[in-house]
Design a protein around this nucleic acid. Structure first.
Length: 113
DNA sequence: CTTCTGACA
DNA sequence: TGTCAGAA
């Protein structure tokens, strides 16, 4: 989406990534990743044996997005949270709007038949 | 050897 | 956010 995102290493075709790999993939320190996990409810890597974190592609993408908001567009953590929640809401709104239109189209089709 | 938690600067 | 200790 943004210029900086293009510069980060592309995500390998693996399913899970250790915190070490994720840190490298996103260029965000490990302890920061753990901290963000407390701040952003959207960020929830699955935990396995020994409480080790395993991140998936969407986690990596989310982290990159958060990093972009925080480091590149001077958002505060609170602002970034609100931004992400707003995006999530508009996404849901668009989805429900799509369903409504889909419904109306179907009704028009029925009328034409 | 890597990662985790908790504590403290 | 950075760093360290001690455990797993």
């Amino acid at each position: 989406m943004s210029l900086i995102e293009q510069q980060l290493p592309s995500i390998p075709g693996k399913r899970y990534f250790t915190i070490s790999e994720t840190s490298g993939l996103c260029e965000v320190k490990q302890h920061v990743l753990r901290y963000w996990e407390q701040e952003f409810s959207q960020l929830r890597p699955i935990k396995r044996k020994g409480n080790r974190r395993y991140y998936q592609r969407h986690d990596v993408l989310l982290i990159r997005q958060i990093k972009e908001l925080l480091y590149d567009n001077g958002y505060t953590i609170l602002g970034a949270k609100q931004k992400l929640n707003a995006d999530e809401n508009s996404k849901q709104i668009k989805e429900s709007a799509f369903k409504d239109i889909e419904q109306e189209v179907q009704e028009l089709i029925d009328i034409l038949d």
